[in-house]
């Protein structure tokens, strides 16, 4: 099974897998230009994520190892999510009863998320988990799992 790993902590790696190490790589920010939707369909003006896009869309599973930052996902990971809109079409459908962007590709990977659990309260953790579930639902992934691990202290 082709798997990709995106990690902010941990040293987990699988043979022959593509690794995006967010502890090492700072993602260029989305400029909000929509060029990926109406000028170069499917391609961002920045090219730092071209390999990521290719591996994301051809993997059956993507495994994330995430840190918690200010009770939410990190700014660097949020930037990665912002930059994932070229993988979808600008058109909207409402068949699920709410607004969703149409797929650009036939299939999207399953998502397995492990996060470094440093939450102060259960409510904070719910916000974080709900957000990630919703994001990958919106990204058309069918199976999404989340696991908190290495309970630690918030910095």
């Amino acid at each position: 099974m082709k798997t990709m790993i995106v990690r902010e902590f941990h040293d987990f790696m699988l043979p022959d897998s593509y690794l995006l190490d967010l502890s090492d790589q700072k993602i260029k920010g989305c400029t909000g230009c929509w060029i990926c939707w109406w000028k170069t369909p499917g391609r961002c003006v920045h090219h730092d994520l071209d390999l990521f896009y290719r591996h994301y869309i051809t993997s059956e599973k993507v495994i994330f190892y995430l840190t918690v930052s200010q009770g939410f996902i990190s700014g660097n990971l949020k930037t990665l999510f912002d930059r994932m809109i070229p993988l979808f079409l600008p058109y909207t459908n409402y068949t699920s009863g709410e607004s969703m962007h149409d797929k650009r590709y036939e299939r999207y990977p399953d998502i397995e998320i492990h996060y470094h659990d440093t939450f102060l309260e259960a409510a904070e953790k719910k916000i974080f988990e709900d957000y990630l579930q919703r994001t990958f639902y919106q990204f058309h992934s069918k199976n999404i799992s989340l696991t908190g691990e290495q309970r630690g202290v918030r910095k």
Binding site: I27, G29, C30, G32, S69, Q70, F72, I73, S74, G75, N76, K78, T79, L80, F81, D82, M84, I85, Y131, R134, T135, Q138
Partner: peptide, 17 residues
């Protein structure tokens, strides 16, 4: 701010951090 992927843009999260 604009809503990006159901949340704040990455640059705003960096400010929060």
């Amino acid at each position: 701010m604009p809503l990006y992927i159901h949340a704040m843009p990455g640059i705003v999260m960096k400010l929060f951090e």
